[in-house]
């Protein structure tokens, strides 16, 4: 990757806290730290992947980026405009250029709308083509996402998960966006179909010059399609760097743990190896200092009190660990 690409979206200090009721009859109140002081850029034309386990804040990141959830603090700047200051009404035309594809294609498609209607709706809403040309455009999009044109009149229940996901992608494309958030867009699909959808996304990116924020829990899928990878843990971004660097030379112990947990062909369990413990702690009561210190094999006293900042350890490769140099 060359460093000349300009940022399309600049995120700085993005924080999102949710208040939840707790205790008996919801008398108590707790704050979920879904996103804590996250800063990064998304470069024009790149695929930036965000990986992390459930509760890491990766989905909240996608939603707050698009202002589908308003941030508690921090800014998201798109084309020189701070989206946090734009009213919902004024956001509509901007949203045309910022789209999202969700995990479950069945629940994001209207069950009583045909594929053709679902794709035509955003075209009509944003008045992207003349009313007489809408159908032509819909058919062109079906071609783009690799669905036969006769699917125009199909309903979601008549299609497989992979086909529905193609429609969801087509609906996002109908807006002629610059930026698409893929929120676990392939996680619900079978492996053989996953590969089809990944390839479709790659083709579309090359053809239309799209920028992707690709949210996934599976770091192995990310390896093939991203330029850069960000790793999230309990609302913090703990590592951000080029895909090869992060996957081959991870600089954060959490990334290392995540990578080593991926099932590999040829690795065998004997039933005698010690079972590693630990799970992601509750985001309502995150640990002090480094969020990962409760599970980190390298943690010291410093880690329990001092929160490490995401800093550049190698050119273009940032990590939030006091001892990241150790892993260079």
């Amino acid at each position: 990757m060359t460093a000349v690409a300009a940022p399309l979206i600049e995120v700085s200090g993005l924080t999102k806290h949710y208040k939840v009721r707790t205790g008996r009859f919801g008398r108590g109140e707790a704050v979920v730290h879904a996103l804590d002081d996250v800063s990064f850029d998304v470069l024009k034309g790149e695929t930036l992947s965000v990986v992390g386990e459930s509760g890491s804040g990766k989905s909240t990141l996608g939603l707050t980026l698009l202002q589908l959830r308003r941030a508690t603090s921090g800014t998201v700047v798109f084309n020189g405009q701070n989206l946090g200051e734009v009213s919902d009404r004024a956001l509509a035309p901007i949203r045309q250029r910022l789209q999202i594809v969700f995990q479950d294609p069945f629940s994001t498609l209207h069950p009583r709308m045909t594929v053709g209607e679902a794709i035509a709706l955003p075209i009509r809403f944003h008045r992207l083509v003349e009313p007489s040309k809408v159908r032509e455009r819909v058919l062109a999009i079906l071609d783009d996402v690799g669905l036969p044109r006769r699917y125009e009149n199909h309903y979601p229940h008549e299609m497989s998960g992979g086909q529905c996901q193609r429609v969801a992608i087509g609906r996002a494309l109908a807006c002629e966006p610059e930026f698409i958030v893929c929120d676990e867009a392939i996680s619900a699909l079978d492996v053989s179909v996953q590969a089809q959808i990944v390839n479709l996304l790659v083709d579309l990116q090359e053809k239309l010059g799209l920028t992707y924020l690709f949210i996934a829990h599976d770091i192995s899928v990310v390896r093939h399609i991203s330029n850069r990878v960000a790793v999230m843990y309990l609302g913090h971004m703990v590592e951000l760097g080029p895909v090869d660097g992060v996957c081959e030379r991870p600089l954060h112990p959490y990334t290392q743990a995540l990578l080593s947990a991926v099932p590999r062909l040829g690795e065998r369990f004997t039933g005698e190896e010690p079972i590693a413990g630990g799970e992601i702690p509750s985001p309502t009561a995150p640990p002090s200092g480094c969020r990962f210190h409760t599970r980190c094999p390298f943690a010291t006293d410093r880690c329990t009190v001092e929160l490490p900042v995401l800093r550049e350890v190698k050119v273009g490769h940032r990590a939030a660990c006091h001892y990241a140099e150790r892993f260079l």
Binding site: S192, A195, Q196, S220, R223, D244, V262
Partner: peptide, 17 residues
Amino acid sequence: SLPSVADHRAGRRLPAI
């Protein structure tokens, strides 16, 4: 079609069925 973290195959496309 199993994606792999270990070997980075040439190109970004996965072999699909």
